[in-house]
Amino acid sequence: MMSARSRLSTATLLGLCKDPMLDIQKLKVVYGTGHLRVDAVKDVSFHVEAGAAYGLVGESGSGKSTVLRAICGLAPISAGQVFVDGKEVKEPRDKAFYRTVQMVFQDPYASLHPRHTVDRTLSEPLAIHGERDAEVRILQALREVGLGPSFRFRYPHQLSGGQRQRIAIARALILRPKVLLLDEPTSALDASVQAEILNLLDELRRKMGLTYILVSHDLAVVAHLCERLLVMRHGEGVEETTAVALRTGRASNAYTQELIEASRGFSRDTVKTASAAL
């Protein structure tokens, strides 16, 4: 608990003396028109300081993933502004943007090309950006995510889920971005593997000074990785709060409180009389 609190205060201090690394202002994402119109994200605003981790929490359809996808260009920015490192993001995004912002996807079984070896997957971003010494950097990237050189020429089907997610993280980090967008990076993994990936993400952030935005439905995961978070529902931000507040169960919003209750596991309190009959 103490460590989380001190981390928070340093992040806040950093935020005071620096421009935010990421600033989202009144972001709207709209799909379709007429009666097919879906407002996936409605006027969501938040900002993240350099080196901080920010969580977006919510259930399916809350628009949390859409916010991430709008930042990186996989969803349209219908209105509002997105600033990355002080610069407003304009369509189409240039190569410099992709060097600054990278993403890790939810399902490691879907995010790696099934016919490409790890080597090919990792060398692709280097080739796109005309980087040299691919050899050295691929091996270094593998090392950073805790994999040895023996993984370099494997195909995805020769890797476990956790190893695949490590490769996906290595791919995202190989261009040395400043911001990493994490879309439910552990929800497709087993609990023990989730712990490994969370530890890795924690460590990488510290070492490389990365800024994270983590999307998750799991409050405990968000509280573990992030200092601040936004609870979303039906495309809107419901409450911005801190990990510390979550841990102490202080939530001003009823929905947030409901999520906190649910994350503690099943409670038989409401049906106690029924189960007593067993």
């Binding site: 990186c72 260009g73 996989l74 995004r93 240039d94 190569k95 943007f97 992709y98 060097r99 912002v101 990278q102 993403m103 996807f105 939810q106 399902d107 879907a110 995010s111 790696l112 090309h113 099934p114 016919r115 490409h116 692709e124 971003p125 796109i128 950006h129 996906a168 791919r171 261009l175």
Partner: peptide, 25 residues
């Protein structure tokens, strides 16, 4: 699929995606 989204996010051009990632599949 996510792996195409991933290569788009690396800034790959459309011909690169079609030739290197779509056609082999």
């Amino acid at each position: 699929s996510d792996f195409i989204a991933a290569v788009k996010l690396q800034g790959a051009s459309t011909p690169r995606i079609i030739f290197g990632h779509v056609i082999p599949l």
